[in-house]
């Protein structure tokens, strides 16, 4: 498997419906969550599988390179 570049996620809070699907699909270890029960946005994700972006019912998760 090719090594992916770490990313930092950003959540468009205006559209976020707090559904928790991003955390449910996230393969990160425990604790990769924000105080608003989404995936973490304050530190890099080194897996960068982007499944959270795929599962989001309102497409409100984006990322930039860490």
């Amino acid at each position: 498997m090719s090594k992916k570049e770490p990313v930092i996620f950003a959540i468009g809070w205006n559209a976020c419906i707090n559904c928790g699907a991003c955390v449910a699909i996230c393969p990160q270890e425990a604790g990769f969550i924000s105080p608003f029960d989404t995936i973490a946005v304050d530190r890099p994700c080194d897996i960068a599988c982007l499944l959270c972006e795929d599962i989001c019912p309102v497409s409100t998760i984006t990322h930039k390179r860490a």
Partner: peptide
């Protein structure tokens, strides 16, 4: 979104093909 299962190292990961986005 269970964190407790992850604390214990249980295999809680669900496949993207099996989690419906609702």
């Amino acid at each position: 979104q269970s964190q407790v299962g992850k604390w214990a190292g249980l295999r809680t990961h669900i496949k993207i093909t099996e989690l419906a986005s609702c």
